[in-house]
């Protein structure tokens, strides 16, 4: 089997994220792989905040919002990685902004990842649907092996 060197974990900071990292970490331990945790600030979220600010006739800087949100998520991701991954597993994190599924695919390509680990459910999809839209699109389009957790 082609060696697993890099595992990309799609993390949306929902309650399912620690399970994704635990699984990625367990495989990483066995394979000696690096875990790359990816979180994407959804473009729709930024657009929604901008709309609300406009309605309230208040100034909005998407650049500043992204910077603040990136900082907040970096802290949250750092804490999550600390608690959910075994200490000796090599790790890195990426916070991107845009369309979640496109950005995760981009990271998989850029990093030449061997495996993607995602959850069937996420932050915007805890009860209503069987599968998350992002998960479904990733499952259809990711060119490398993909592990989908059904929490």
């Amino acid at each position: 089997m082609k060696a697993i060197r890099k595992i990309v974990a799609g993390i949306d900071l929902s309650p399912f994220s620690s399970g994704i990292l635990a699984y990625a970490g367990a495989i990483s331990e066995g394979a000696g792989a690096e875990v790359i945790a990816v979180n994407v600030i959804d473009r729709n979220l930024v657009d929604s905040v901008e709309t609300i600010f406009a309605r309230e006739k208040r100034d909005f800087s998407s650049k500043r919002f992204l910077s603040d949100e990136t900082y907040r998520r970096t802290q949250a991701m750092r804490e999550l990685l600390e608690h959910s991954l075994p200490r000796h597993v090599p790790r890195s994190m990426k916070i991107r902004s845009g369309i979640p599924f496109t950005e995760v695919l981009r990271v998989v390509d850029e990093e030449e990842a061997d495996l993607l680990v995602i959850s069937a459910k996420g932050a915007t999809n805890q009860k209503r649907h069987l599968l998350g839209g992002t998960c479904e699109k990733l499952f259809r389009h990711v060119p490398v092996s993909v592990l989908v957790l059904h929490s």
Binding site: L130, F139, P143, V146, L147, V148, L149, H150
Partner: peptide, 22 residues
């Protein structure tokens, strides 16, 4: 594969090959 992925109660690993997929 897609139906198993949709309905499985346990994690599903779908093995892919970058060249074949492309």
């Amino acid at each position: 594969a897609e139906k198993v992925f949709r309905h499985s109660p346990v994690p599903v690993l779908n093995v892919r090959n970058r060249q074949k997929f492309a």
